[in-house]
């Protein structure tokens, strides 16, 4: 008997994922700009789901306020671009800003438990939104456009934004993937399974959670940057909306909380639902809310978590498994 990480399926699939990223990079060369814009939206959803899952799935931190970082990323881009920084450089700066702001917030936010953390983060998002509304230079409550992007021809702009989205998604997913596979990741998965037990074994729970929180701050900031780059116009009412949290919760719960692949599945599902019910509307949101609640109550491991459990399938392996001598496999 031995302990292994890779199986043939997971090797094939991880290779496939890398190939998929390369293929996606060619999309703007082939397809119309509306396809590119749609795919950018999908990548934003994947990024958001992965980041929310990093917090809730591995850190046990349920945040209803990640829109704070989306807003910082979006408004940060406009802020830096207005200072005269080249728009795509402004986007990188805004992402860094979101991560930098996550650090001081983490100092006290991470000491809060369950509902205190959830609503505490929500109020922080509201406060940041109110600060933006007070600033006339950022369009106050009425919103502002990223006019600096108009210097690019629309097709090129759409392609650049898509590549940025792809780059962000690959970088953040890879960061999470390798983080979870490192010795550090073993402690993160231990925290996910039982925080008290992990602490008693000497895992530095607070430091690990801080790492996840700051990573999620960066990632959600990057998503905010992409939102403004993709839509060119933002207003505090929508970019700081708690609806983002609703989407993240839906994607992660339906896909599979605490699994690496689950949130990606959830994001693709939400994207499919959004493209089918283009008019949106209340019924669609009733469905989202009810589905999220049902999954939380009845299927807490989500679609992917259940598949993984039943079939012992790991496509992007972040854990280990015990392989028996005959080659018969059992999930570790």
């Amino acid at each position: 008997m031995k302990v292994a990480r890779w199986t043939r399926t997971s090797k094939l699939f991880t290779g496939g994922a890398a190939a998929l990223a390369v293929t996606l990079a060619c999309v703007p060369l082939v397809f119309e700009s509306d396809v590119v814009q749609k795919l950018t939206t999908l990548l934003i959803l994947v990024l958001l789901a992965a980041m929310w899952n990093a917090l809730a799935g591995y850190g046990g931190l349920l945040s209803v306020g990640q829109q704070a970082f989306i807003g910082i990323g979006a408004y940060g881009t406009v802020f830096f671009a207005d200072l005269g920084v080249a728009p795509y450089v402004a986007m990188l700066l805004a992402t860094l800003l979101a991560g930098a702001i996550a650090l001081p917030i983490s100092l006290f936010a991470l000491r809060l438990r369950a509902a205190q953390f959830a609503i505490g983060m929500w109020v922080i998002a509201e406060v940041i939104s109110l600060i933006v509304r007070l600033d006339q230079n950022l369009g106050a409550g009425t919103g502002i456009s990223l006019i600096q992007l108009n210097q690019y021809e629309p097709n090129f702009r759409q392609a650049y934004t898509f590549w940025l989205a792809l780059g962000f998604t690959v970088v953040f997913l890879a960061a999470l993937f390798f983080l979870l596979r490192s010795p550090l990741g073993a402690s993160l998965q231990a925290i996910r399974d039982d925080e008290d037990a992990a602490r008693s074994l000497g895992v530095r729970v607070a430091a690990r959670k801080r790492l996840l929180f700051v990573l999620a701050g960066f990632g959600c900031g990057a998503a905010g940057v992409l939102v403004v780059a993709n839509t060119l116009f933002i207003e505090p009412g929508s970019v700081f909306s708690v609806q983002w949290s609703a989407y993240m919760i839906f994607m992660v719960l339906v896909g599979g909380l605490g699994t690496f692949e689950g949130p990606i599945v959830g994001a693709i599902l939400l994207f499919a639902i959004q493209t089918t019910f283009t008019q949106g509307g209340p019924w669609y949101l009733v469905g989202l809310g009810a589905t999220a609640a049902l999954f939380a109550l009845a299927l807490p491991r989500g679609l992917w978590g259940t598949v993984e459990e039943r079939l012992g399938l790991r496509l992007l392996p972040v854990g280990y498994r015990v392989v028996e001598a005959k080659g018969e496999e059992r999930a570790a």
Partner: peptide, 20 residues
């Protein structure tokens, strides 16, 4: 089922009530 589930379930409920 854990301390997060009530928050998740009631958050879903909140969206349902608002939109109904």
């Amino acid at each position: 089922s854990g301390i997060l589930t009530p928050l998740l379930a009631t958050f879903g409920l909140s969206i349902v009530i608002q939109n109904l």
